[in-house]
């Protein structure tokens, strides 16, 4: 009976989480189009509904009813698999993000997280490293020059920045003393880690943006040289899944930044879930702002930034943090 109850609660949690993620993803697209338009002195979508608010729904219907084309020369199975890999790995990362403190429901304590793994941070990291397959395989399976170039660029970029991403989180784990995301949030009940670890924060945000392949790191889909890069040959909802993956990734980035550096759901006056949503929203806004502001990096600049700046700085940061914890007795 207890097993059954646990399973039901788990399924409800997953359903609410996925529903929320997809809804927010579709409205992030709207927000991005609207904000970018304003940044570029345009109007943006304003025909479907008031302020164009029904535009995401119209887009979704269009994508779902469009004809899907699989190129004759493509590797059919992998071509169909790749978009799903991108979307699924992005969505699964939310399984370990804590939304708030445990709540009491009908006399039982229900944790506000789908699963609190004791290797939660590594789980996120593993999924992020699997996301590379979606891009690389999507580019390869299309059997097209531009898609292949995009896929190779994507793989190279994501492998390079994964290292910096992982190393930037080591000081966070050292301070919290755990890989569990719940424990990391609990460790920030006083001071959020952005105050203690500003360097880590900067490295994390830069390399996570590179992982999400957005401007200024959008070389895998650079439209003026590669068509659309790794998803050139995709159409209909398969293209939609790549798109969805990108916008879920923005939320993941916001949630992880909030959990690792901004104190997660901690905050005064407002309920915990609202605080977390607010922090995710702010990070998403800043990402859209960056997209509207910066030009794309050149390929050698991208590699130099990753390997010659971010990785050495994060290694030094780890040593300095270790010295502080050891000698200043501060943790």
């Amino acid at each position: 009976m207890n097993y059954l109850l646990g399973l039901i609660v788990l399924l409800i949690k997953i359903a609410v989480m996925l529903g929320g993620l997809l809804l927010v993803a579709s409205y992030l697209v709207w927000l991005e189009r609207k904000l970018l338009a304003r940044l570029q002195i345009r109007l943006g979508p304003n025909r479907a509904g008031i302020f164009g608010l029904l535009q995401p729904i119209a887009d979704a219907i269009k994508l779902l009813t469009k004809e899907e084309i699989v190129p004759t020369a493509a590797d059919g199975f992998i071509f169909r698999l790749a978009p799903a890999v991108v979307a699924v790995t992005a969505m699964m990362m939310f399984a370990v993000v804590p939304l708030g403190p445990d709540i009491r429901l009908f006399g039982r304590s229900v944790p506000m997280v789908i699963t609190d793994l004791n290797v939660g941070l590594l789980f996120v990291f593993a999924l992020s490293s699997l996301g590379v397959y979606g891009v690389a395989l999507g580019g390869w399976a299309s059997n097209s020059k531009f898609a292949l170039l995009g896929g190779i660029r994507g793989a190279a970029q994501m492998i390079s920045y994964e290292l910096a991403l992982g190393l930037s989180l080591v000081p966070v784990v050292m301070l919290a003393g755990s890989f569990s995301l719940t424990a990391i949030v609990d460790a920030q009940s006083g001071v959020p880690f952005i105050v203690l670890q500003p360097v880590s924060f900067a490295i994390f945000v830069i390399s996570a943006m590179a992982e999400s392949k957005r401007i200024p790191f959008d070389l895998p889909e650079a439209e003026n040289e590669l068509g659309a890069g790794f998803h050139t040959e995709y159409s209909g909802m398969r293209f939609g899944l790549f798109f969805l993956g990108e916008y879920v990734h923005i939320q993941v980035l916001g949630a992880l930044t909030a959990v690792f550096f901004l104190g997660g759901w901690h905050g005064p006056w407002l309920p915990p879930v609202v605080w977390l949503m607010l922090k995710i929203f702010i990070v998403a806004l800043i990402m859209i702002w960056i997209r509207g502001t910066l030009p794309r990096l050149r390929y050698d600049q991208l590699m130099a930034l990753g390997w010659k700046v971010l990785i050495p700085v994060s290694l030094i940061n780890i040593v300095v943090t270790g010295a502080f914890i050891q000698f200043a007795g501060f943790s």
Binding site: A126, S129, L130, V132, Y133, A136, L137, G139, W140, L148, G151, I152, A155, A156, I159, E162
Partner: peptide
Amino acid sequence: AGAIMVLFLFLIM
């Protein structure tokens, strides 16, 4: 799965 095999894939591509 995430690093070594991606490098393999990279080379094969």
